[in-house]
Design a protein around this nucleic acid. Structure first.
Lengths: 255, 255
DNA sequence: CATGATAATTAGGCAAATCTAAATTAATTC
DNA sequence: GAATTAATTTAGATTTGCCTAATTATCATG
């Protein structure tokens, strides 16, 4: 009945009760404590908070149930959870256990608008034939090997005719191998490439590799300082600043 | 120097200091308070905690800076943030401001494995020519109109030859319109379709529409009870339970 | 129906993260 | 260089969510 702001913890309790209601008839404090992994007094005290807010019904020593309002809110939370889980499992191919955990935490962090957009995205992947299940299979393969299968590229040949840039990239990859390798410092800002090889030896080579600049990684040029030193790049999400001498040991090929 | 467990709040402070260090030379308590939207004493007390952990250097009334360790951790957090933001902006097309907010909250919720997978996914979208920028353009369009453009489907015609099921779907959609509409209750479990129309009138129709079962929405059949009543479906992430008489007012077409 | 086991509540404490108000230090300026 | 102003810290309170220990209620059953 009081104000409408729920903490993530309160949301978790509502969701837990909601899920217990779907399984069991009568819910006891103990069941909630077990589900949430907390002790009994913690549940009692949270229930009092939720009763105050008009979201839960509970007489001392009796069963617990959600009110209409509580049920409505819990359903929303459960939906957030479900959408996130399904994104993690069906699109990102995260394993079910971890997906469950992550969905549980992320459901309190994602905004309503972003959630709806994520749902739309999943629908799109499913509906648009350029994405869909075949495409996701290639993603599974990419998860394992870090590169798309050749036949993923070949499949697209006809389609790619209209996209000459990409077509050229593809030809380059299939034709003269490594033909396109350039020095990292020659990559223009905003462009991406794949690390082809790192030359040099000893500590300079080690330092470069330690930064995550390893063959196969995708690198994006962010900024080249006036005299070409330092060079700022992004690799695996990291922003790195390379000195000129370091950058000249790194060769980059097409994606 | 003490234990290694950081709360989300501590992570936020580290990240804030890290970002301030990139902009300004000397950082004061006031700057942090302003960035974080808290009062000065809150910052002082958090700084003491972080000093204790060996992540921050700060002499009374002096400037604040991250230690090596603090900087390393902050960089990781910043990376999480950056990857999430880029997913939200570049893939989901969320507007920059909201993306920033969401990334900020989600960065504390996502697990390392899931984060890496998300990064891989983004690389895949970029690298695999079946996805890529053209495909994402169609997603932008789908965000607006709720359906893929016809030319998105046509583009794929050649490609789809090998995928007869999808091809048939496509033909159905372009050919005899609405030919494939069936009653919702006839949809088999696990299958999805698009709501074509809702018949009936008055309260029953309103109730159906209020549940989110509206033309254009994508629906998945989850379970049909033994006697066909109730029917459990998922629409826009919601789990709904429909009575037989409700379900027989709903027609479903192909995706 | 008395009694022991189980469940739930009450009481009181703790840590994190915030606040306000008051005291202190540093910086500026006249 | 003394006084004013701004920044910072200290002190102490609050809220949330958890805990342990002790008390109380309910239930099964001998």
């Amino acid at each position: 009945m009081s104000e409408g702001l729920l903490t993530p913890t309160m949301e978790d309790y509502l969701e837990t009760i909601f899920n217990l209601e779907r399984r069991t008839k009568a819910i006891r404090v103990k069941d909630i404590a077990q589900s949430m992994g907390v002790k009994l007094p913690t549940v009692t005290s949270m229930l009092n908070t939720l009763i105050q807010k008009g979201l839960v019904n509970h007489e001392k020593y009796e069963y617990v149930e959600l009110t209409g309002e509580g049920s409505k809110i819990a359903q929303e939370i459960d939906r957030r959870h479900g959408i996130l889980r399904s994104f993690l499992i069906d699109i990102l191919k995260i394993d079910a256990k971890l997906a469950e955990e992550d969905a549980c935490k992320m459901e309190h962090a994602i905004s309503p608008d972003t959630l709806e957009r994520l749902l739309l995205f999943m629908e799109f992947v499913e509906v648009c034939p350029r994405a869909g299940s075949e495409w996701l299979k290639y993603f599974s393969q990419y998860c394992r090997d870090g590169r798309p299968k050749d036949d993923c590229l070949e499949h697209m040949k006809g389609f790619l005719d209209q996209y000459s840039t990409k077509l050229k990239d593809m030809e380059a990859r299939k034709g003269v191998k490594k033909m396109a390798d350039i020095l990292l410092k020659e990559l223009s800002p905003g462009k991406k490439g794949r690390i082809a090889r790192v030359t040099g030896s000893g500590s300079i080579r080690r330092r470069i590799l330690d930064m995550g600049i390893v063959p196969g990684a995708i690198v994006e040029m962010e900024r080249v300082a006036p005299l070409g030193d330092p060079v700022e790049v992004k690799v695996k999400g990291y922003h790195l600043s390379l000195r000129k001498d370091e950058a000249s040991h790194v060769y980059v090929g097409p994606l």
